[in-house]
Design a protein around this nucleic acid. Structure first.
Lengths: 262, 262
DNA sequence: AGCACTGGTTCATTATTTAAACCATGCTTA
DNA sequence: TAAGCATGGTTTAAATAATGAACCAGTGCT
């Protein structure tokens, strides 16, 4: 593995830790040598991707990503575009809705709109969504070309609960179902007591870029309601796609013009 | 320079380009070999920091930073805390107000609240703010220990306009003035026709972490008004600091408790 | 067809990264 | 108070990965 990959993996691991971490702690979490870890941390810190607290010398995620993230959002406002629809879907369903984006080979949660109900599902931003064990993953993969389905189907499928689908046949069946329905369903595959439905958000060439997912406590769901959530999610996904790629095209054109004349 | 630094510099250059760039374009912009550049881009893409458009093979900033940025903000909500005060300051002054953060050895703009006036100052998110040529940089450095002032004072000071202060003596004088006033002033040092005032936002141990800056067209300013903006900025900075480090401490404590008991 | 550009790849050379052993310091405990 | 131990941080020869000149292949233009 290249050095850059290692460093970015370190950054990733650090970002998934739920508190500031010491040097050795980071080292063991990444399976790297202490000296190496430190060199990485120092270099990452120089660019603001990591910061070391002056008080206790612990490390944490720095603020450079928020700057870059803002730049990206300013040019390619996926979140900005999607958030209103996420909120709307949450209000329509009354359940926690989350938005995920595909990036770096993985699907991860980038925004959550919490249900206002007392009994609700909690999801942390940054959560990774395995393809086989979540509604989001299923919806995403189902929207991909068959070769990606095959890759996912033949990869490892760790079980997170007793309900996780871990064999290829069931997985492929779920994909088929998702493709015919237009939305995916996952029943307690990732977390016990949670029932999710999801729909992929795709670009104009039908390449998926992320998905929008409704996560409800099992006790509040039945087949009819799930179907309702699923259809609502699919509709929201379609609307986000239109809004996003609509404005994007216009903006691209405007930028282009600006560049050519100025 | 280490490989990681080079890669992050590439990422940085890419983020500062105002459109998607081809391989060779990126390579020359970074002063790297084409092969190296490509290796970097591929590795960065694997982690979502860069994405290659399938249509024209051009590269652009990826979405991983927005995920990491969201994680950071969820834990350490600097923007979330500061934005209301930025907005308030904009309304009070009627001028564009921007918020900057120190990270990776540089001060950069992370948020902008545009004035509602037709004739106003425009600032792009991600803009780098040199210490000697901007009100923000001055405010920040003035809030640092003397050794940092010395480092900045003896470094190179490129001129951006005819008004930029480029000599050590004037720079030090400006720092002194800033320290006594509690806010900094910069008159056309970065851009002709722009007059800015800024105040540093510091942590409880008086270490600055960023600043808040009012940028007005020269024609709308006079000494009294500038002073007014400066004092307002200083007050806003203080309030942000209180709000931020107030909630932060509480959250830290809550997290700590959660960790210990669970 | 030929040219001038792209994006992308190869491979011997070269430089960086690695990790074991090391030091220094602060905290806990005997 | 002193010893022990965990922590952050540093050094080194050995191992590994980065480098870049030369290369191929595709595309659009003359």
């Amino acid at each position: 593995m290249g050095t850059i990959s290692k460093a970015l993996t370190l950054l990733d691991t650090l970002s998934l830790m739920d508190r500031d971490a010491g040097l050795t702690e980071v080292a063991v979490a990444c399976g790297l040598d202490k000296a190496t870890t430190r060199r990485f941390l120092v270099e990452l810190e120089k660019h603001g991707f990591v910061e070391q607290l002056p008080d206790n010398r612990k490390y944490r995620l720095g603020s450079a990503p928020v700057r870059l993230g803002r730049i990206r959002e300013a040019r390619y406002p996926f979140l900005k575009t999607a958030i209103p629809f996420v909120r709307q879907l949450m209000e329509d369903c009354g359940e926690t809705v989350h938005l995920s984006e595909y990036s770096g080979g993985r699907l991860s949660t980038v925004y959550v709109e919490d249900s206002t109900k007392a009994h609700r599902v909690f999801i942390a931003i940054g959560t990774l969504l395995p393809f086989h064990a979540t509604a989001s993953g299923l919806a995403f993969i189902a929207a991909c070309p068959d070769k990606d389905v095959d890759a996912a189907a033949t990869g490892p499928m760790p079980a997170f609960t007793n309900y996780t689908t871990c064999d290829e046949a069931s997985f492929r069946k779920a994909i088929e179902q998702t493709r015919t329905d237009g939305y995916s369903i996952n029943r307690q595959g990732m977390e016990a007591g949670v029932f999710s439905t999801s729909a992929a958000i795709s670009d104009p060439k039908a390449r998926p870029i992320g998905c929008i997912t409704v996560a409800a406590p099992l006790v509040r769901t039945d087949a009819a309601r799930i179907r309702q959530h699923g259809l609502a999610a699919a509709a929201a996904a379609r609307r986000i796609s239109e809004a996003f790629f609509g404005v994007d095209r216009k903006e691209q054109a405007a930028l282009q013009r600006g560049r050519e004349t100025g």
